[in-house]
């Protein structure tokens, strides 16, 4: 206890130095990210829902792709960024890294939920089943539980730094699931079809359908940027409130 108290002023300085710079950057980036999101979302939705052609096999049901696929991309991207941040948090004790992971987890969980729900709505008419336990679907469900576990662990301890540490370890351990999700459709027989866009020999989607898909991908990325900044701002403010209350109670 004595050691911790002696470290407190230094730790507080360290904690404040970076967030101040981050907040300035965040305030500069946020409006641009918001504008990019709105433009790409508008264009992507218009093209995806109305202006793009129906698929030769799947008909109009293919439009579900324009939310399903970007959500699935983001589910993997957000988890990967959380794993990278957790690595930085554990090795270099970077004060913003834990903050990022905590802010990103609920957004990643949201994207994963969207991918699962829209996939189910697409699977019923096309495959003939709402759900199957093939390796792609199962590994994405595991990803969803990893996100929920991360959120639960972050908030499970009275002392926030211990929760952040446990969650960072979970994020790194769970990262093995990311290549499994990505390559499950190549490694094993699955009902889910292989990748259409992120593949070595180039996309197998007609340009008229690839454009709305990419626009929605940019829109979802912009959305993530906006919301993760908002959540980090909320968390930085929450820590300030805690620190101010602590100093008031102590003084």
């Amino acid at each position: 206890m004595g050691l911790k108290d002696r470290n407190r002023p230094a730790a507080t300085m360290h904690r404040y130095a970076n967030p101040a710079r981050f907040l300035r950057l965040a305030r500069a980036v946020q409006p641009w990210a918001a504008v990019l999101t709105i433009i790409c979302l508008g264009a992507g939705l218009y093209l995806g829902l109305f202006a793009s052609p129906a698929d030769y096999q799947q008909g109009e049901s293919v439009r579900i792709m324009y939310v399903h696929v970007p959500a699935a991309w983001m589910a993997l991207f957000v988890y990967t960024s959380m794993a990278a941040a957790s690595f930085a948090a554990l090795v270099w004790k970077h004060p913003l890294a834990d903050l990022f992971a905590k802010a990103a987890a609920p957004i990643g969980a949201g994207f994963t939920l969207i991918a699962l729900a829209t996939g189910s709505l697409w699977g019923k008419p096309m495959w003939g089943a709402w759900w199957v336990w093939d390796s792609r679907l199962t590994s994405v469900l595991v990803l969803f539980f990893l996100y929920l576990g991360h959120i639960a662990l972050t908030n499970a301890f009275d002392e926030p730094t211990r929760g952040a540490r446990a969650a960072a370890i979970l994020a790194l351990v769970g990262f093995v699931n990311v290549p499994i999700i990505k390559f499950s459709v190549d490694w094993w027989n699955t009902l889910h079809q292989p990748s259409s866009v992120l593949r070595l020999d180039g996309p197998t989607i007609d340009p008229s359908m690839l454009w709305p898909l990419l626009l929605m991908g940019v829109a979802f990325t912009g959305y993530f940027l906006c919301v993760v900044i908002l959540r980090m701002r909320a968390e930085i403010a929450a820590r300030r409130i805690r620190a101010l209350r602590y100093s008031r109670a102590a003084g």
Partner: peptide, 18 residues
């Protein structure tokens, strides 16, 4: 007792397929 359809990773409009 159950038949599931599996589609491939190719997406294109019907005219392009034709």
């Amino acid at each position: 007792d159950s038949v599931l359809a599996k589609h491939d990773e190719n997406y294109m409009p019907a005219e392009v397929a034709e």
